[in-house]
Simulated assay, not measured.
Amino acid sequence: MKNIVILGSTGSIGTNALEIIRNKREEFKVLALSGHSNYDLLIEQIEEFSPKYVSIGSEVGYDKITKKFPKLKVFLGREGLKKLGQLLEMDIILISVTGAIGIEATVEAIKLEKRIALANKETMVAGGSYINKLLKKYPKAEIIPVDSEHSAIFQSLLSGKKKDVQNIIITASGGTFRGKSRKDLENIKVSEALKHPNWSMGKKITIDSSTLVNKGLEVIEAHELFGVDYDKIKVIVHPESIVHSLVEFKDGAVIAQLGVTDMKLPIQLAFTYPDRESSLALEHLDLLKIKNLTFEEPDREVFKGLDLAFKAGKIGKSMPTVLNAANEVAVELFMKEEIKFLEIYDIIEEAMKNHTIKDVENLEDILKIDLETRNWVYKNFKK
């Protein structure tokens, strides 16, 4: 019986993870759950799975949960997430919160040498070099990626040796606005940007997908997770979202992982690896129903987020942290209708130009640069 901690249990990844656990109660026990503001759903999850610990992001939610479950150990806010990362009883922690807020819990779990099922790309974008240093210091800790693209790369890399990798090829759906011109995007509404053609995801990641910033963050994450140079990381648009990513080896073999547009498979694999298990929760791919798989170049002139991420990644040091923080605030301002869609790129670009590059030695450096960048964006762009 493995004790599972789920950070972000009320989001799309978290609810899918609970569906996996629901179908494998003889293997997994929910030790702890966290939610941000959806305390009604979190209360339902507490009633069904009986966790020992819970963290909630809002004081209103904290009051309601502590009142309804007086014997439950309940934590609050960012510090609560950190405490869940310090639970000695856990075997696996799923980090599926959105944004840099997931870094501290990841760090704590590494120090305990636990398995981290990582669905929070910002952890490796903002703090990848520091996280990799920690993994060397605590060698029994392991990160198994949950993002569909990185899980696909992880699985495909098992087919060969790292020294024989020619290219990592990350697929992108193209997002909500694939094929649109910059003029088409000038007056895009938030509701339009949230209509992803293939995936059901949280609001922030859906906006990131529509700008292709999400794919840029995945490029940086792939560099940090797999130790592959940026010149060997390619991005192609694959509208069907069936091929989740590929690895090309130097002999010309291209190994791909295919699957339905569903996050349950990579979640379960992160829980059971190196074993693969059947489950009633998993849907199987029927290629005869798909019929066609197509691929095309991303439009880098319209969707500037991809090249901004490549630039930040190649600069390295503190710049990926700046990219991530500026994007998080820009997306927030767009969703509040304080900026236009295309201004997301402008904010990221200006934040990167404004930043003086620094070395990142520890978690405090990451959090400081993150906060400084956020404050700069708020000061210069918030209405």
Score class of each variant (00 low, 15 high):
residue 3 N to C: 03
residue 3 N to E: 08
residue 10 T to H: 02
residue 10 T to E: 03
residue 13 I to V: 12
residue 14 G to M: 08
residue 24 K to F: 04
residue 30 V to R: 11
residue 32 A to V: 03
residue 33 L to T: 11
residue 36 H to D: 15
residue 40 D to W: 06
residue 41 L to V: 07
residue 45 Q to P: 02
residue 45 Q to Y: 02
residue 47 E to M: 12
residue 48 E to M: 06
residue 50 S to T: 04
residue 59 E to R: 12
residue 62 Y to K: 06
residue 62 Y to I: 08
residue 63 D to T: 13
residue 64 K to A: 15
residue 65 I to L: 04
residue 68 K to Q: 15
residue 74 V to R: 10
residue 78 R to A: 09
residue 84 L to R: 13
residue 85 G to E: 13
residue 86 Q to K: 12
residue 87 L to E: 13
residue 89 E to N: 08
residue 91 D to R: 01
residue 98 T to F: 08
residue 101 I to Y: 01
residue 106 T to H: 02
residue 110 I to R: 05
residue 111 K to Y: 07
residue 116 I to T: 06
residue 116 I to L: 03
residue 117 A to H: 08
residue 117 A to V: 09
residue 121 K to N: 02
residue 124 M to T: 15
residue 125 V to S: 05
residue 131 I to P: 00
residue 133 K to S: 15
residue 134 L to N: 11
residue 141 A to N: 06
residue 142 E to A: 06
residue 142 E to C: 01
residue 145 P to F: 01
residue 148 S to N: 11
residue 148 S to M: 11
residue 150 H to D: 13
residue 154 F to A: 08
residue 157 L to V: 02
residue 162 K to R: 11
residue 166 Q to H: 14
residue 169 I to T: 12
residue 176 T to N: 09
residue 176 T to F: 04
residue 183 K to G: 12
residue 189 K to W: 04
residue 189 K to V: 03
residue 193 A to Q: 09
residue 193 A to L: 09
residue 197 P to F: 12
residue 200 S to E: 13
residue 200 S to N: 12
residue 201 M to C: 07
residue 203 K to I: 09
residue 204 K to G: 10
residue 204 K to P: 07
residue 206 T to S: 05
residue 209 S to I: 01
residue 210 S to W: 03
residue 218 E to Q: 08
residue 222 A to Q: 01
residue 224 E to F: 12
residue 225 L to G: 09
residue 228 V to E: 04
residue 230 Y to T: 10
residue 232 K to C: 05
residue 236 I to H: 02
residue 236 I to T: 05
residue 241 S to V: 07
residue 246 L to S: 15
residue 246 L to V: 11
residue 254 V to L: 08
residue 255 I to Q: 01
residue 264 K to M: 09
residue 265 L to T: 14
residue 265 L to W: 05
residue 265 L to Y: 07
residue 274 P to D: 01
residue 280 L to M: 11
residue 289 K to F: 00
residue 291 K to R: 12
residue 293 L to K: 10
residue 294 T to E: 14
residue 300 R to K: 15
residue 303 F to L: 07
residue 306 L to C: 08
residue 316 G to I: 09
residue 318 S to M: 05
residue 318 S to Y: 02
residue 318 S to F: 07
residue 319 M to D: 01
residue 319 M to F: 10
residue 320 P to G: 00
residue 321 T to K: 00
residue 330 A to S: 14
residue 332 E to F: 04
residue 332 E to W: 03
residue 333 L to E: 10
residue 338 E to R: 13
residue 339 I to L: 11
residue 344 I to S: 15
residue 344 I to V: 15
residue 350 E to W: 00
residue 352 M to F: 01
residue 352 M to K: 03
residue 353 K to D: 05
residue 354 N to F: 02
residue 354 N to R: 09
residue 359 D to Y: 14
residue 362 N to A: 00
residue 364 E to D: 10
residue 365 D to T: 10
residue 366 I to R: 05
residue 367 L to A: 01
residue 367 L to M: 10
residue 379 K to N: 01
residue 379 K to G: 00
residue 381 F to T: 05
residue 382 K to P: 06
